[in-house]
Design a protein around this nucleic acid. Structure first.
Length: 271
DNA sequence: AACGGGTTCAACCGCCATCAT
DNA sequence: TATGATGGCGGTTGAACCCGT
């Protein structure tokens, strides 16, 4: 059970808002705006904490909120943006006028995740570029992969699986707090995978590849990393490769999956 | 009709970044 | 520079609702 919130300690109300409370909040903000959320409930005569008022306003009462079901186009937009932004719901909401981050988060967890799982055959929820260095994240170009979903959308560039190891320029990692940051740069377009690529990668303990490739995941196996790990530890990943290697369409997702996972990873050395 | 399990979504929580002092 | 206040964010919760038995 959750810890008792500060609101209750202070005798403030929590839980669902009543229509009367909504009206008080709307009337107050119409008249005076919401310069200071903490002071607002007291001034408006609401027995709520400022945080609760802010949430109610931004997620429900704001006049520019678009109510109702998400259109297919909106859903596709969310899927596309989630591919590049991950669980940055507010950033996604900023691209969908009238929709709130909370609403998008809900629709993702209740509808879209399932839809993608059905379409892709594995848990797409894990597809996130996990970048813990928030400050630099805003400045970084997201890693975009062309998929059937993202095709034809502005801002996406086509990146296909590499033909050979030499054409994969860098995969760098950095660490901050408990998360990993992975940045992949691919400077070339590739038409198909060369078998040698994987053999090189998988046997690259002492080659330059060793510093280029650090983290992979295999669904639903625990995350593993290579090539500093013994090859034996890559069995689940290898199975995954085998089923995806020459399927270009699947491979787009596979590559995304491969390079963007960074869940419970072991600590990695600085590159 | 009653029940139980699954789903939805509004609201909450803790954490973090930013800002003012 | 240090500290406290505030706002914003993403993860999580739980009541209400839905649906199959």
């Amino acid at each position: 059970m959750v810890r008792a919130p500060c609101c209750e300690k202070m005798g403030l109300k929590k839980g669902p808002w009543t229509p009367e409370e909504d009206q008080i909040l709307i009337d107050y903000i119409k008249l005076y705006g919401h310069g200071n959320w903490r002071a607002l409930p007291k001034q408006a005569g609401l027995l709520r904490c400022g945080k609760s008022c802010r949430l109610r306003w931004t997620n429900y009462l704001r006049p520019d909120i678009k109510r109702g079901n998400f259109t297919r186009e909106e859903e596709n937009t969310i899927i596309n943006l989630h591919e590049t932004l991950g669980n940055r719901w507010s950033a996604i909401a900023a691209r969908l006028p009238g929709r709130t981050d909370n609403e998008i988060k809900n629709v993702w967890h209740t509808h879209l995740k399932k839809r993608l799982k059905q379409n892709h055959g594995f848990n797409v929820n894990e597809h996130q570029v996990i970048d813990s260095s928030k400050d630099t994240q805003k400045e970084q170009e997201p890693v975009n992969f062309l998929s059937p979903v993202t095709a034809d959308r502005p801002g996406y560039r086509e990146v296909s699986p590499p033909e050979s190891s030499s054409e994969v320029s860098t995969l760098t990692t950095s660490e901050n707090n408990s998360n990993m940051c992975m940045k992949i740069e691919m400077h070339e377009d590739f038409s198909e995978i060369d078998e040698n690529f994987w053999s090189e990668v998988l046997s690259a303990d002492n080659s330059s590849m060793a510093s280029d490739f650090q983290v992979v995941g295999s669904d639903p196996q625990p995350h593993q990393y290579f090539p500093s790990s013994p090859l034996a530890s890559l069995e689940p990943v290898n199975d995954y490769y085998a089923s995806n290697l020459y399927d270009i369409d699947t491979n787009v997702d596979f590559w995304y999956d491969l390079f963007t996972r960074a869940g419970d990873l072991p600590e990695l050395p600085e590159i």
